[in-house]
Amino acid sequence: MNRERFSVVKIVSIVGLILLMLWTAFPLYWVFNMSIQTPLDVISYPPKFVFDATLENYSVVLLGKAWLGKYETVQTDFPRYFLNSLIVCFGAVALSMLVGVPAAYSLARYRFRGKENFAFTLLSFRFAPGLIVILPLFVIFRRLGIYGTYHGMVLAYQLITLPFSVWLMRGFFEDIPMELEHAARIDGYSWWGIFRKVDLPLVAPGIAATAILSFIFAWNEFLFGYILSSDVTRPVTPSLMGFISYEQVLWGQMAAAAIITLLPSLILAIFIQRYLVRGLTFGAVKG
C-alpha cells in the first residue's frame, strides 16, 4: 500500500517538474530557434520547428558581414556594445567590492549609532524601481558632465551592485565566529593582520560568489544602461533595441544577439554553484 502511494506521488511530482521546465525553457528555445532561422522562416505562420538552420544571423551580428543581394546590412557595433558591457560591469563590481567589503565588515563587527538604519537604507536602494530615480539621475549626470561616460555608468550601477554586495558580505562576515578574531588578537596580530590572515581567507568564497552575482545583475541591467549611456558607451542589453529599425524588426539578428548576450550570465550562474558553500567555518568553533 505504501509503495503504491509513494510511486503516484513521485510520478505526479516528476510530471509537474517537467511541465515547469518546459514552461520556463520554452521562450529560450524559441529565441534560439529564431537565431538560426532565415528571415522567412522566422515570420512564417504556423511557426516552423523543423527548418534548415543557418548561422548567418550570427555572422551578421558578430562580424558585420552582409549577405550580398539578399539581406539588409546593419552596421554591426555589437562587439563594441559587448565590450562596453564588460567594461562597465567589471568596473561596477570592482568598485562595489572595494567599497562594499570593508563596509560589510564594519557592519558585521562594529557598533555605531544608526547602524541598522543605515544598513536597511542601503538595501532599500535595490528595492526602489529604477524608473523613479532614472530621470533625476539623467539630469544630474548631464549637469555634472558624466553622461555617457564609462565612469558615470560605473557609478550609477553601484545602485544595483552595492546594496546587494554589502548585504551578502555582511552575512559572510557575521558567520565568522568572533572567537577566531579574539584568538588572533591574543596570538599577537593587529586588526589588519587579522583581517588579512583570518577574515579574508575565510570569506574568499563569499567574495567570489558575491562578485559573480553582482556581475550577473549588472550585466542584465537594462534601464540604467539605456538612459545614461551614449551610443559610444552603450552596454549590450539596451543595444538589442537597435535591431528594431524604422521599417522592420530584424528578428533573427536580434535573437542571435540576445543569445550571445545571455551567455556570460549563464556560464557564471553555473560556475557560481561551487562557491555558494555555507558552513565554510565548520570545525572552527564547538557546537
Binding site: 572567537e179 584568538a183 591574543i186 570545525g283 568553533v285 557546537g287
Partner: peptide
C-alpha cells in the same frame, strides 16, 4: 593594554580554531 601587549596565551573552551 592590547591582548598582544599583555603577552598572554589562551585556550578557548569553544576551541576557536582557524578553519582554513
Amino acid at each position: 593594554f592590547d591582548p598582544a601587549e599583555r603577552d598572554v596565551a589562551m585556550a578557548f573552551e569553544t576551541y576557536a580554531l582557524y578553519p582554513h
